[in-house]
Nucleic acid binder design. Structure first.
Lengths: 203, 203
DNA sequence: AGCTTTTTATACCAGTCAGTATAGAAATTC
DNA sequence: GAATTTCTATACTGACTGGTATAAAAAGCT
């Protein structure tokens, strides 16, 4: 018989909550980017010391990846939901409105962590950049698959270039995130989303 | 009587060409961002020493600004041209095709220097970020004015939200630049532009 | 209680950052 | 040719980077 709960283990227990500290690290990376966030920034915000951080998370790079996982799980959940919409127009609408909601709540940092992380990687941290690009591509592919299905269902015109349409939606989402990150007002972002939806083919 | 040409001055003349060195610095900043470009990166690429750089350009920040001026003058010239198009659709078309041409020639780095510079600025270099945002806003305003005029001319429907339309065009351009910067193929970028133009109201 | 395990805190490492002081070399003007 | 001016090269500064060695402190298990 052994204890099932991993909580109970020998030795001195950790004095901080790992999930909580990770959430704080996420905010720091989100606002400052990968290279912009120094270990001093991170440890001060998380309220732990350097050796504690390394013991709990490995190193800066793996901490970033864990924070990124949390970001996608918690903040990008609307993307997965959007793909379940019954029509292609519904998909686009949920994507745009979801992104708008995320960029206009006033708890979280502005901008998109994938974009910020990807651009703020110098040549050294190339593997992080590659990781971020791969994650973005996989989301792009999921959208592509969904729209291909819509085309097969007759929900999109036969002449439609699905890949182009995907890149188009992605570009608007990226632009939305970038504008939010550089100080656009809520009203401006709303106008952007409404205009984009007005452009969408069909009702 | 004094010599008009500033070329002739006393003392040992500079051994390198300032404009040429600036063009090289532009490429370095363009590919690595502001903070990502170290003085060592810069001086090695420019082929000059550190003191020469400081004597000729002031410091890193003012070098960046000079490089940015050059970028806008040489690489963003198509924007000013686009605004002169006779119709609003022509404006959008020239903007998108101009950006596409710039992102698909194979001499220059990929991505947009304004975006890269703006995102790759940590908290310290806040003034650079502010400068970049201001420049972007002024371009946005110019487009806004142009589309307002189009609306007054009856070239855009009365119901049109010009500010929203501007943010929309800006977002597509930003998305295009970002996708180009993260490895999208020429074909993909072309599809993005064609799809965007197909969405544009009117013929 | 005593032993083990894991956490903490402090101090440190080598490397890099932007920026500069110093001094020698080169070219122009008088 | 001599004086002046401005360049270049070398070496250095203090501050910061990510990462770690060391040792004390705290908790659980037997």
């Amino acid at each position: 018989m052994e204890c099932i709960l991993p909580k109970v283990c020998k030795g001195r227990p950790r004095e901080f909550d790992v999930e909580e500290a990770l959430a704080v690290a996420l905010r720091v990376f989100w606002t400052k980017g990968y290279e912009g966030a120094s270990l001093t920034d991170l440890t001060e915000a998380m309220g732990i010391t350097r050796p504690s951080l390394y013991a709990a998370f490995g190193n800066k790079e793996s901490l970033f990846r864990k924070a990124l996982d949390l970001y996608e799980r918690e903040k990008l959940a609307y993307v997965g939901e959007a793909l379940k919409a019954p029509t292609s127009r519904g998909v686009a609408e949920r994507l745009l409105r979801g992104a708008l909601a995320m960029q206009t709540n006033d708890c979280d940092p502005k901008g998109c962590m994938r974009i910020i992380g990807s651009v703020s990687c110098a040549s050294e941290a190339e593997s992080i950049r590659a990781d971020l690009t791969a994650r973005r591509r996989s989301a792009q592919r999921a959208l592509c698959d969904r729209l291909e299905r819509a085309k097969a269902d007759g929900d999109l015109p036969e002449s439609c270039d699905v890949e182009g349409l995907c890149a188009y939606v992605g570009a608007i989402l990226q632009g939305l995130a970038f504008q939010a990150g550089s100080g656009a007002t809520k009203k401006q972002l709303e106008a952007l989303v409404e205009t984009s939806l007005a452009m969408w083919p069909g009702k």
